[in-house]
Design a protein around this nucleic acid. Structure first.
Length: 595
RNA sequence: GGGCUUGUGGCUUAGCCAGGAUAGAGCGCCGGGCUUCUAACCCGGAUGUCGAGGGUUCGAAUCCCUCCAGGCCCGCCA
């Protein structure tokens, strides 16, 4: 089984008032092994022991610790459920429990008090100070190296046309998760699975052979391939008799016919070269491109099909398929055509078998259209005794005028999006900072554009389908990537003017305290993101941190304050700047020092 | 038709899996704030039957059931 960390902490997002936090850690001790495996940060260890102490004092098998919101760092509602059992008012029970907890040696430094039926826990000043000290150091939110090898597959778009705004939702979710996993200490390999022998590619190859190709100067390879692919599809609609030629190409490539293999490889390579440029602009890096056809050439597909043919669920009636009806799948899971060629699902099984044997945790980022085939894949891998992937599905992105289709040519390409957003960002930079050298203006514009695009996509929960909106993509204001970058740049500006200062932590103002409390939560957020594979939690966290900092910035003077207050506030600014930088980097956004 | 999924102010959205303190935000709207650490900012105001209806519970946006609406899937495509 994938060594998924124990579900020790809750990640629910109750965004709320400024002094509330969006990432309430909720301890569910029922699921804890007692060793606290997978728990890394000081705060989570602390929360874990609070939960354990509470459990002991209540004599309950499980207790829940929720976000305390504006009231506390953590809160328990255990008094409600005990009230019935003990036939006493909840508030009275809460008072007793709080009193007993406060006396425990292992709760030293934690303020525990009852507020009506709620039991509230607050980190004491000493614990806060230590956490803020951590937050000022580069690498805050990272965890020590782990042994568990992780492979993460994302994007894996078919090489039949450029990446569009639907594909890059995959890229951005995947790349953000990759950055978070690395930050969390996992040895990670990011892979792109190249579907280089599918029907679409056969159509591209057929198009290159049958469609007159008028070169367009400066056209990227992926856009060139799309042009041919779209034209080829139109042609095939007009001349359905040619579909047999496409089938023939697929048979030839699977049988390894050298000339056909070369044609496929050349078309795919041309498209992939274009992808690489786009992925690079998006700040996404793959460690390895894994070619689907390799799993034919190396015999893995044959091996897995042979193993499957001995399974009791296997049916062979011309085609080879699995009957997974016992597992709730009504449809045949076809793996080999009656002409002997394999289908995508078979090659995917071979790929995942390989991943299963070489990694300890397998993660795939796939579109919602892969939900059924993904579930069939997982079921089959279990039957084969292989490690199934954890699949992160994201819903579709459509255009106001309808769904995107490479074949129909109805899509907004990632390249066009990047160009337009960069152009707009340059306009902003040029008007705000006319004195900057040209090269720097361009560099800032590129970073701001990337921040806007990545954040606009990653902030939305993957299970919402969305409609692409230029207005939102070009918004650099609140709840945007540039907004968070701006808060970071403001912090940098203060620090630059401050000169040297000593560490201090003596919050006086409620704004300082609210900011500090949020900074302290960051490691817990990182734990939640890599456990639940939900990058939008990090996006929300970073935005809230920027919100809190901006309010602090507005109300609390830093450079104009004196003595310990100045050192303390500068320390807080440093901690904010560092935490924002760490969070932004995990989101694939450049933490600009000036903008 | 079956399966999966989403439905929260005019628009976009967090919270839902692991039920508890006044349902948080942003855009837009109204009204304020730049001789003061970067106004890509801040403050205040109006705006909500949490799709509808039942149920469970001391307590439901959150869990269960039914229904309605949108998205995706149901190929010897990938």
């Amino acid at each position: 089984m994938p060594t998924r960390p124990a579900r020790a902490w809750r990640s629910s997002l109750t965004t709320s008032r400024r002094d509330r936090c969006s990432i309430p850690p909720l301890v569910v001790l029922r699921h804890c092994s007692g060793t606290g495996r997978g728990i890394e940060s000081m705060l989570s260890r602390l929360y874990f022991s609070i939960g354990a102490a509470l459990k002991e004092v209540c004599g309950q098998d499980e207790v829940f610790l929720a976000d305390g919101g504006a009231h506390a760092d953590l809160a328990s509602t255990v008094a409600f459920s005990l009230a019935k059992k003990m036939r006493r008012p909840p508030a009275e029970i809460a008072r007793d429990i709080a009193a007993r907890l406060s006396q425990r040696a292992d709760m030293e430094g934690i303020l525990i008090e009852a507020a009506g039926p709620y039991i509230n826990f607050q980190l004491g000043p000493a614990i806060q100070e230590r956490a803020i000290q951590d937050a000022t150091h580069p690498g805050y939110g990272s965890f020590p190296p782990r042994q568990e090898r992780v492979v993460l597959e994302h994007t894996s778009a078919n090489p039949n046309g450029p990446l569009h705004v639907g594909h890059i939702r995959n890229t951005i979710i995947g790349d953000t998760l990759a950055r978070c996993l690395r930050k969390a200490g996992y040895p990670l390999e990011v892979q792109y699975y190249v579907n280089d022998m599918g029907r679409q590619i056969a159509i591209v190859v057929w198009g290159f052979q049958n469609i007159p190709d008028n070169p367009v100067p400066g056209e990227k390879g992926d856009h060139h391939v799309a042009r041919i692919y779209i034209a080829a599809n139109r042609e095939l609609e007009k001349r359905p008799e040619c579909v047999a030629e496409v089938d023939r190409l697929m048979q030839l490539v699977e049988s390894g016919d050298p000339a056909t293999v070369r044609l496929f490889r050349s078309a795919v390579t041309e498209c992939l070269e274009g992808f690489r440029v786009t992925l690079d602009r998006l700040g996404a890096k793959h460690d390895r491109f894994v070619w689907e056809s390799d799993f034919i050439r190396n015999g893995d597909t044959e091996r897995v099909l042979s193993k499957i043919s001995h399974m009791e669920e296997c049916r062979h009636d011309g085609k080879l398929w699995l009957d997974l009806s016992a597992f709730g799948f009504a449809k045949e899971y076809v793996l080999r055509r009656s002409d002997g060629t394999s289908v995508y699902a078979a090659r995917d099984l071979a790929y995942h078998t390989w991943k299963s044997r070489n990694y300890d945790r397998v993660i795939d980022v796939l579109g919602a259209d892969h939900k059924l085939i993904g579930a069939q894949l997982v079921t089959t891998l279990r039957l084969l005794g292989e490690r199934p992937p954890e699949i992160v599905h994201f819903e579709f992105v459509s255009l106001p005028e309808g769904s995107m289709s490479t074949r129909a040519g109805t899509f907004v390409s990632a390249d066009d999006l990047l160009d337009e957003v960069t152009r707009r960002a340059y306009g902003e930079v040029a008007s705000r900072r006319p004195e900057l050298p040209e090269a720097q203006k361009e560099e800032i514009a590129r970073s701001v554009a990337l921040a806007a695009i990545r954040y606009d996509i990653v902030k939305i929960s993957p299970d919402k389908s969305t409609v692409f909106d230029w207005k939102e993509a070009l918004d650099f204001e609140r709840q945007s990537g540039p907004y968070i970058q701006y808060a970071h740049a403001r912090a940098c500006s203060i620090l630059e003017k401050a000169g040297t200062f000593g560490f201090a932590y003596a919050p006086e103002d409620p704004h300082e305290l609210a900011l500090a409390r949020h900074i302290i939560r960051f490691p817990l957020v990182m734990e939640n993101v890599v456990r639940d594979l939900k990058p939008h939690i990090l996006a929300a966290y970073a935005r809230e941190l920027a919100d809190l900092f901006n309010t602090f910035y507005h109300f609390v003077p830093v450079l104009r304050s004196e003595g310990t207050a100045r050192d303390s506030r500068l320390t807080l600014v440093r901690a904010t700047q560092n935490t924002l930088a760490e969070a932004l980097q995990a989101l694939g956004i450049v933490p600009l020092a000036t903008m």
